[in-house]
Design a protein around this nucleic acid. Structure first.
Lengths: 199, 199, 199, 199
DNA sequence: GATGAATGAGCTTTCATTCAT
DNA sequence: TATGAATGAAAGCTCATTCAT
């Protein structure tokens, strides 16, 4: 154990940091190798090719994010609280490392590395969200006529949207904090059953 | 007239098709030229450089989309109907050309071609949405505590999300039609003022 | 007459101005054509190719310079005065249009357009200088043991040298005026027979 | 050691030979790589870009020339002898490699690679000459009213001139040996104080 | 396993020249 | 003759991948 996986991990971490600093297309094998403190050729002892490295990184990152999210929601009761906690987890990662958005949100698209591979870890993350939606529906907290697979993409996409918004407009005209609040409100009443007043 | 713009248009259409087939980063000048049936150098008679070509394509596409959307909503009264009409217009384009999502929805990020340029046509499209939101708020149809700039990104992102969903999962497990319905419901109650019961 | 040569002349003048503004390598056929107010293809009705244009321009410019120099020295007696007048003529042209130096002084070298062609007009200009040297030698003003062909190159090269100096060092540390004076003094005593004092 | 610098040297020597054969502007990276027996990309393992290669070559060549000249003059006393020794050194190099003139004497002009960089090695070489001139002036051997910065360019340019002459005219009508003698004579009396007769 | 120099296909861009009109 | 859009070879440069050590 250890040694082999240590170097593999070192390379992946270097790749993550290079992407975080230089962006997806600025992440060359040479920069990754240098930061990892290994020779360029060494990368190919641990990964088939660059694509394999990036996909592995992607999988690992989403897997860990999902794990952290699962831990956090395990203490929570209400589906709204769970969704909010997950959302915070995701936002935290990408606020710290804006460039990761490129790889972990944006490179999820037709034609990208990740698309053909239908990367499992992202689907698992989406499954987590879907589970909460279904749970909320069972508890009659969330509207039962919402398609869960569609709903999870609406939530995921809306979150991406406000991150994009933060870049598209400046920090001056776009408050991420206010945007989070707005998103929360929209989703809350968008998802929740309307309370039958007077009953 | 015509001839000059014809060739320009031919090149732009070729670029669009190459992007559609090969993705944004697979769209080389050589492939574009070949598909357009012109020499590579000819591209540079009509565009300053590749970036100029891509941005022109981007601008043109969003501009036309915005125009069509404006025409469609001019007959409509209720903000919900307007948003739905716009949404249909966008979905129509990207269902036909899935790869365009890369360029027209996604390449809007720090470091990308479009980010520095803050391409005006996309902002105009978003302005259209924002206008409808503000209008709905004035009419006390939409919640007044929603930040319009955030809201427009939530809508935009949610729409992207369900398009992504359609690709991430197969057609068999993801019904775009059902997804649209779900999105509509979420946004409807998400955006609209809750009716004061007892009145 | 006229029309044919007019257009030819127009193109050459445009070429001269483009070189003067943009330098030798910035002088593209497209810029020349635009400034001349003709189509790019038209250049090829008057010149075999770009090389032919440039060489023609070179020849013409040196021919005219030689003519002007001949006119000026026709009134002068002493070889020193003649050389100085020629020198002033050359310096005047290149001080006004520094970029011309590239073509008319510097592109005279092995491997250049002009080298293989052994451009006649420059040789005529050098012949003019040589004639003055020979004349000075006949009159026992100049040293008779100087090889005239070598001497003409020494003069020509020395003049180039101080022009280079003006570029190599800044205007602040290199006074072209002082340099001319120095060159004059060196050549004067360098060329002239030493007067046998006391005899 | 060695191996790394060997390849660097191989590439520089190839560049030198390509320039010698094809001239400065005919020296493409592809030709250089082919002659060096390396892939084009290999050049960029040793030099930042083509400009860096050419400037390195230039610097190296002038530096070595200056070194050799310094060694040779260290044994000499009279400024005339020193200048002559330097001159011989320069002539030796360029007689062997005529095309180098382009790069090492002539590409020193506004707009050229070397101009902006004010390549230090050439200035050092010129400083060497200037030092001898100043020394000669201190010793009252050379005229004190000559501007040393101008004088060094006159000498430099005159030497260039006779090299040019050797190419412009054929070997049959231009004797480089005679030209050297002529240059020596002109400079000798041109630079030296006139002896005060009667003393 | 680890190295990193070497590779070379492929990229965007330029521009002298051609030729159908 | 005049046009100028079209051409395409060739340029400098990048970088994922290989392989001899």
């Amino acid at each position: 154990m250890g040694n082999l996986n240590d170097k593999r991990r070192t390379i992946m971490e270097a790749a993550l940091r290079v992407i975080a600093n230089k962006g997806f297309h600025g992440a060359t094998t040479s920069k990754i190798a240098k930061l990892a403190g290994v020779a360029e050729g060494t990368i190919y002892n641990y990964f088939e090719n660059k694509e394999d490295l990036i996909i592995s990184l992607f999988e690992e990152t989403w897997r860990k994010l999902t794990e952290r999210a699962e831990t956090r929601i395990s203490n929570l009761e209400h589906p709204n609280d769970k969704l909010e906690a997950i959302f915070d987890e995701v936002m935290g990662l990408f606020e710290k490392n804006p460039h990761l958005i490129e790889v972990f949100l944006i490179e999820i698209k037709p034609g990208s590395l990740f698309y053909e591979k239908k990367v499992q870890s992202l689907l698992s993350f989406l499954d987590l969200i879907e589970g909460i939606i279904r749970e909320g529906q069972s508890l009659r907290i969330y509207k039962r006529d919402l398609d869960p697979k569609a709903t999870r993409m609406v939530i995921f996409g809306a979150a991406q949207g406000i991150i994009h918004g933060a870049f598209l407009e400046g920090a001056e005209s776009f408050s991420l904090k206010a945007a989070k609040e707005t998103l929360k409100r929209i989703l809350k009443s968008g998802l929740m059953e309307e309370i039958q007043s007077g009953l």
